[in-house]
Design a binder for these strands. Sequence first.
RNA 1: GGCGAGUUACCCAAGUGGCCAAAGGGAUCUGACUGUAAAUCAGACUGCUUCGCAUUCGGGGGUUCGAAUCCCUCACUCGCCA
Length: 426
Amino acid sequence: MEQKNDPSFADIWEELNYRGLVHVSTDAAELKTLLAGPPITFYCGFDPTAPSLHLGNLVQILVMRRLQLAGHKPLGLVGGSTGLIGDPRPTAERTLNTRETVAEWVGYLSAQVARFLSFEGDNAARMVNNLDWTAPLSAIDFLRDVGKYFRVGTMLKKDAVSARLNSDAGISYTEFSYQILQGMDFLELYRTYGCVLQTGGSDQWGNLTSGTDLIHRAEHASVHAIGTPLITNSDGTKFGKSEGNAVWLDPALTSPYAFYQFWLNTDDADVVERLKIFTFLTRDDLERLERAVEAEPFRREAQRTLAFEVTSLVHGVAATEAAIAAAGALFGQGELAELDAETLGAAVAELPSAKATAATSVVQALLDTGLVSSLGEARRAIGQGGVYLNNEKVADDTATLEGSELAGGFAVLRRGKKTLAGVTFS
RNA sequence: GGCGAGUUACCCAAGUGGCCAAAGGGAUCUGACUGUAAAUCAGACUGCUUCGCAUUCGGGGGUUCGAAUCCCUCACUCGCCA
């Protein structure tokens, strides 16, 4: 649980590479020297495209934290201005969010990032918002002072831009300009704080180099960038999705229980890589778990460790233990009917739930708890034999909750093997 | 501004007057097998009061007994030309 870098590595650069966190970077030898030397200031930006950060962002946050633990000084940037523009996605133009929404999300994200960094000591972190230096800039100043450093040919070659130009979606001037804004951020932070390194996802590489190039031109200085790999599942699906939804860091959007379950269900083929990236376990621990996956996969020790470590990191140990206890009660071998009201209540509290009465139909309860999205789907699920009420298969789609009330006034609905919801009788 | 091409369900993509609630693939969900894993096989996948009905094929209007398919119009996208 303790957050520290593994002292068995010669320096943080070695450790980042071991953990598979460096996909692309500026000159590796220089970076290694830079990171092994006296403290530097670096930054990583987060755009407010949602009210919460998600697991993809957590990778970046942990890179920041590891660098901070190595003595370097982090600047956590929230994109108050870049969030108003939107970086080009490869598929299609983004819908612009209102200024009010973006401002609100900036607040949420800023607080989330701050939780993972230390604001004490010589290398205390600092949060910045790029709206602070972008908002006062006039269009004329922007074009004269910044635009002149950018060549359109270079801008067109960036993957994000060229993908869009080659697609049938095209790209607006607004999104095309995004890379300039991000480049300006790096320049601004270089000037104000002496920031010499930007980290980010490899999909941001074009934007990262936009900044290093700009500083090169405007300040004749060499600064650095590190791009982390895009994390993918070994089966080819997207990492960080649970039932089609993003896994958020905000407990109101993804409950600690669901968060824990997400990690617990990690594939054997992926679990070691995840441990390297998302935990502070040492190389020794990781190698031991890797052997455990091979020798005794059914024990799922690596998955349990991963789920515990990451959930504790994000939601705290108490919430994690509650999630584990809930899973134990709900997935345990014992009968649900034998659980006492307190245990059951705590377990149900971790699940999505809805109020109902004994007369409520099972299909309606499935819909109310969000286990299905329509009554038709609920009937279909029952017809497929995929619905359980208090661990007993529901055979008839006209069934009601009659007689299903357990201790404390709850019932447990399940869809499939592991999608659970609680019902509270009123 | 001119000319051409295009807009189909979560995504990709067939369909060019009735046999279309709309092929195929992917994603997703369920079942079997399992370790709350993967792979594999099977089924489901617009909604509803489900052997039937209602509403979908960019928006609106029209032709027709009948339209995703034909016509008009608006919006958006892409390309070429200016």
